[in-house]
Every structure is written in structure tokens, then in C-alpha cells.
């Protein structure tokens, strides 16, 4: 929760006025430390630049409900973009969020149906299912489109970053604290940064009424 508030603060407060492209590149590597102290997989890490705003795209990002999981469980979008939540499981799901940046409750709906939401405020939005406590996802709502997902080796390449002094963040679900670096981006130049991220355990959350879930349910593999 502290991380979510901090990250929301950062993406909200550091968002400055809009700037024009073209610009430079910010590249680098994110290394991830798992709770046992070992170096982990750097997949499912979002790297983003803050300090300026850009308009959203018309693209609708999809977070599927499949095998009692949100797939993917971490996405980044730009302020005012939409996220769709299709249900591919043969039973009901109830997607909701109690995050300050975006509270919503999609109600329960069956396989084959999809509902979507627009996210008009920058911040970190934690999304859960009111029926299945093991389902958790995070939506990073960012002030601009300069956000990418790292590759399998933790590399990232953010292109089209406007010239200026900005802050680069790396964020992963279960990160114990946000990690960032100051960068100075110059036109047609590459800026290289290295970021380190520590992963913790999944945070226990409450249902949409603020109560503990009655019991953990069995997690089925995807596609079953």
C-alpha cells in the first residue's frame, strides 16, 4: 500500500506540462532480487519515464480473467486510456478496485462477457476479484506513453523520450520499494541506466466490503 501511494504520488506530482517530440532513448537493465535474496527473473517489470504528459492513445489494454488469474497481472497505460476485463473462465468473476486513484466495481459476469473501465487519474490501481482472493493485478496509470515492459533478460528500451531532465522508474508487482534514477535525455542520444528492484511477498488484501475472504480457493492452471 505504501508503495502504491508513493508510486501514485510520483506519477501524479512529477507530471509536468506536455512537451513535443522527437527526442532520445532511455535504455538499460533492471535486476530483480527475490525474497530469498537470489537474483530473479526480470520479466513482468514495467519501466517508465515521468516528468511530462502526453495524450492517451485510443488503444484498449486487455487484462483477461483466465484460470483464476489476471493475465497479465501488471499493465501500464496512459491517463484516460481504457482497460478491458474479459472473463474466459467457466464461472463468474467480480473485478473491483478500492485504490484511491480509481475505485470501481464491475459486478459479477460470466464467461464470454467483458467490461471495461477508463482511468482518468494517474496512480497505481490494484485490481482484485471479489470471489477469488488469489486473483490480483496492478494497473499503472501513467502521465505519458513512455513506458515499456522489460524483456526476459531485464533489458528495456524507451524511445521517443522528449529532451529534458526526467525520472525513470521500474515497477513490478510485489516490489518492496520503488526504484528510480534521474536521467538527462538529449535529442537523438541514448541514455543508459541500471535499476535494481527487490520483490517481496504478495500482500494479503480484503474483499470489496473490506472483509477477509472466507477461504483461499484452488488455483487452476490456465485454460482449465
Amino acid at each position: 500500500m505504501k508503495i502504491a501511494v508513493f508510486a501514485a504520488a510520483v506519477v501524479g506530482v512529477l507530471a509536468g506540462p506536455g512537451v513535443a517530440e522527437p527526442g532520445g532513448r532511455v535504455t538499460g537493465t533492471v535486476t530483480v532480487t527475490e525474497p530469498d535474496g537470489k537474483t530473479g527473473d526480470a520479466v513482468d517489470v514495467i519501466v517508465y519515464v515521468v516528468g511530462f504528459t502526453e495524450p492517451p492513445t485510443a488503444e484498449v489494454t486487455t487484462v483477461s480473467q483466465k484460470g483464476r488469474k489476471f493475465v497479465p497481472d501488471l499493465v501500464a497505460i496512459t491517463v484516460n486510456e481504457r482497460v478491458a476485463f474479459p472473463n474466459f473462465d467457466p464461472f463468474l468473476h467480480n473485478v473491483f478496485s478500492q485504490s484511491g486513484a480509481r475505485k470501481f466495481d464491475l459486478g459479477s459476469y460470466p464467461r464470454g462477457e467483458s467490461k471495461d473501465k477508463q482511468f482518468p487519474q494517474a496512480g497505481v490501481v490494484d485490481v482484485y476479484c471479489n470471489i477469488h482472493p488469489e486473483m490480483a493485478a496492478t494497473i499503472l496509470v501513467l502521465p505519458n506513453r513512455r513506458h515499456v515492459r522489460t524483456d526476459a533478460r531485464g533489458h528495456f528500451d524507451i524511445q521517443g523520450v522528449p529532451p529534458g531532465d526526467w525520472t525513470v522508474f521500474a515497477y513490478a508487482r510485489r516490489a518492496t520499494k520503488p526504484t528510480s534514477a534521474k536521467v538527462t535525455v538529449k535529442p537523438n542520444a541514448e541514455t543508459v541506466v541500471a535499476l535494481e528492484l527487490a520483490r517481496g511477498a504478495e500482500v494479503v488484501h480484503l474483499n470489496k466490503y473490506g472483509e477477509k475472504y472466507h477461504e483461499q480457493t484452488t488455483v487452476y492452471p490456465n485454460g482449465h
Partner: peptide, 15 residues
Amino acid sequence: MRIALAFLVVVCCAP
């Protein structure tokens, strides 16, 4: 200081 300011802004402006 900046983090504290950011925190305050978020807490006060959160819907």
C-alpha cells in the same frame, strides 16, 4: 521533502 509533498498531494486529492 519532495516525497512528503507528493504524499500529501495524493492523500488530499485522491477521489
